[in-house]
Amino acid sequence: METIKLTINGVEVKVNRGTTVLEAAQAANIYIPTLCADPDLEPYGSCRLCVVEIEKIRGLPTACTTPATNGMVVHTETPAVNEVRRTSVDLLIANHPMDCLTCRQNQQCELQQVTAHLGITERRFPRTDQAFPVDTSNPFFDLDRNYCILCAKCVRTCDEITGINAIDLAFRGYSARVATFGDKPLIESTCKSCGECMVRCPVAALTPKETRRPIHEVKTTCPYCGVGCQMYLGIKDGQVITVRGDRDNEVNGGHLCVKGRFGIAEFVHHPERLTNPQIRKNGKLAETTWDRALDEAAARLGQYAPNEVAVIASAKCTNEENYVLQKLGRAVLGTQNIDHCARL
């Protein structure tokens, strides 16, 4: 790919053609505040925080939407740029609850970060407030539009990443808001509860119902299906309380579905979860060891003619495991009665 050179704040940066000014700056470790930019989403240009000055370009273009070109000279911290950024944040926080200490996103809030970056310590504008009711209908996360800054990351995620389009922007101007069809509660919409929107929400408009924060994280593979999504389980007091996708993993690139994101903790800590094999004797199940269970199964399978045996594979197994299982069915047991639970 063709490489181009540009100068950002006096630093020469080499990037591939097609890179945006924002990406070029990030590659050079130059911080440009953003609220609506996301590496997984198309540039949008709504928050106006990434405005920069570019020599020979009129006005203040947004770094996230402007392609870097060869020889471009960019300044990311000028008085004009900072004034516009400051005004945008001033306007946002005037339209925002600012109850940071008790907010679910406290210290994880991107609006909080840019406010601190710009050194804003007071509200310049009077509070504007629309008093939206909170949508708590989804079992896993809440939608509180009072915190929403309309970066549309959720809407764009639901369109560009999941293709579900359960939500879109509705109405316009000051009345614009994230909405399902007919402003119905999320649970009545086509939302699949994957939570991809929630993950990207920079503020507390989309937050998980689980508000505890983990002490440490454990990397693992999602046990729910054969895709093999990589994830980090957040642990506190020996309990799984959060799950986040591993962005660096090639399989899922950080994405998770509703099961992986919201279905792990419940089954891991469920009192009825089986943790050992069991053998039914006289109508009652009794715990046993893996060796004994496998011996028992092998012995009993040997008592049947091949056609009398069926093998049902599980979606929780990997592709490799499922392959081995069908091999066992066909080559060892000699049966063609093989099926998979995902097809049932």
């Binding site: 106006r48 306007l91 101007g173 009345s175 614009a176």
Partner: peptide, 14 residues
Amino acid sequence: SCGKCVPCRLGTKQ
């Protein structure tokens, strides 16, 4: 205002 960008959506309101 379409409501997309912050200065127009909230600035004109202020």
